[in-house]
């Protein structure tokens, strides 16, 4: 293993996060904080308590999960797309770096960025409402795994994309709608039975509810299912990435 090489890829990506701090960290935190203030504090005060949890508290895990999903994805996709686009990827391809080291550097940096955002959002939310965490180990575990999985997803899409538009398709048309419909703002038990069944096909439901369970012990799906869905996604993405390693897809001409 070229550990220094992997560390360099990681460090360079983290340096990029710092360089575009406003866009990479501040902007997603502000966006999420606005959701929280409007839906949680303003409207939420008029909404009944759900399973002993106030509405302001209820939406926090969902908002954190949504931020993790979107930011790990976009950090990794833009991370690998940029050097591919300007050609500076040659620096890594001509160095004694394996595909595993390159990918791990990007994916771990994107995971770190997403987790930083998640933690900041949690701290900001603490100003508005008390947020005890019932299962801190699982809260951290779900957060890390989901960020890791979506960072891999972002890496694959960033590698595949041939234009800036292509990698914006997934966050805008897939992640955001699925998160909004996946119970960030409501418990799916509030839906009519038919839509409840439909919603169970949305994988993000399991991720959002997993984190909500870790926070408050309440969930629409069993936490074991949350863990299983995350692991299934992880397996699929590791499979895709392994295939990329084998073929050099889009990395080497």
């Amino acid at each position: 293993m070229n550990w220094i090489g992997l560390w360099t890829v990681y460090k360079k990506e983290m340096q990029r996060t710092k360089r575009v701090l406003f866009q990479s960290i501040v902007s997603p935190v502000i966006t999420t904080a606005l959701y929280f203030i409007v839906f949680g504090s303003a409207i939420g005060s008029a909404i009944a308590v759900i399973d002993g949890v106030s509405y302001a508290q209820f939406i926090v895990p969902g908002l954190i999960m949504m931020a993790l999903l979107q930011n790990s994805f976009s950090a990794a996709s833009s991370g690998i797309y940029f050097p591919k686009w300007i050609g500076s990827i040659y620096e890594m391809l001509s160095a004694p770096l394996s595909y595993i080291e390159i990918t791990a550097g990007y994916v771990l940096a994107a995971t770190t960025r997403a987790l930083l955002i998640g933690i900041i959002i949690y701290l900001v939310a603490l100003f508005f409402t008390p947020l005890p965490v019932l299962h801190p180990f699982w809260a951290l575990g779900f957060s890390i795994l989901v960020s890791f999985v979506f960072a891999m997803f972002g890496f694959v899409v960033g590698l595949w994309a041939n234009s800036f538009e292509q990698f914006n398709i997934i966050p805008t048309f897939v992640i955001a709608p699925l998160a909004f419909l996946g119970g960030v703002f409501y418990s799916i038990s509030m839906l009519p039975p038919f839509w409840q069944t439909v919603t169970l096909f949305n994988p993000l439901v399991y991720m959002i509810n997993g984190l909500r369970w870790a926070f408050f012990g309440i969930t629409d799906v069993h936490p074991l299912w949350s863990a299983i869905v995350i692991l299934i996604f992880m397996t699929i993405l590791i499979g895709i990435i392994a295939w990329i390693f084998k073929t050099g897809y889009k990395l080497r001409k």
Partner: peptide, 21 residues
Amino acid sequence: MLDIFETVWSTMQYARGFFGK
């Protein structure tokens, strides 16, 4: 084909780092 947002110095550091040195 360079990352134009980096400084000359950090470009040197990363270049050597990629080689595991």
